[in-house]
Computed example of a mutant assay.
Amino acid sequence: MSVVLTDFSDGVAIFTLNRPEAKNAVNLEVSQALAAAVDEFEARSDMTIGILTGSGGTFCAGMDLKAFARGERPSIPGRGFGGITERPPTKPLIAAVEGWALAGGCELALSTDLIVASRGAKFGLPEVKRGLVAAAGGLLRLPRILPYQLAMEIAITGEPFTAERAYQYGLVNRIAEPGEALVIARELATRVAANGPLAVRATKQIVSMAANYTDPDSFIAQRQFIDPVFSSSDAKEGALAFAEKRAPVWTGV
Rank of each mutant, 00 (worst) to 15 (best):
T162A: 05
A96R: 13
A136I: 07
I206W: 05
A117S: 09
V12L: 11
P197C: 13
R201C: 14
R130N: 12
V133Y: 12
L182R: 11
A61T: 03
A189D: 11
Q149R: 12
V229P: 02
R130K: 08
S111F: 00
F161E: 05
I175M: 14
N212D: 15
P74T: 13
R223Y: 00
S231Q: 15
L198T: 14
K129I: 03
C60M: 06
V3R: 04
A241P: 00
S118T: 06
F219N: 03
Y167W: 14
D217I: 04
R19S: 11
Q149S: 13
T85V: 09
A185R: 09
A43I: 07
G104Q: 05
E40Y: 00
R44C: 07
F15L: 07
L188F: 12
A61N: 12
I154N: 00
A243S: 06
L108K: 03
E42L: 03
E107A: 06
K236L: 13
R141H: 06
A13F: 08
P77H: 09
G158W: 03
L171F: 07
V253D: 14
A117V: 07
A95P: 04
I175Y: 01
L142I: 07
I94P: 13
R144P: 06
N27E: 09
S231I: 01
L93G: 08
R70P: 00
L188S: 07
E29Q: 14
F161S: 11
P92A: 10
E86S: 10
A202M: 12
R191D: 12
F59H: 06
R130P: 00
F230C: 01
T53S: 14
C106W: 01
I84T: 09
F68S: 14
V4D: 14
I184M: 10
A13Y: 06
Q205T: 05
T112V: 10
V207K: 03
P77Y: 03
I51W: 06
Y213H: 09
M63I: 15
S208C: 05
A166D: 03
Y148T: 09
L93T: 12
V133F: 10
G62A: 06
A185N: 04
A136Y: 11
R186F: 08
A61W: 13
F161Y: 12
F59C: 05
L17W: 13
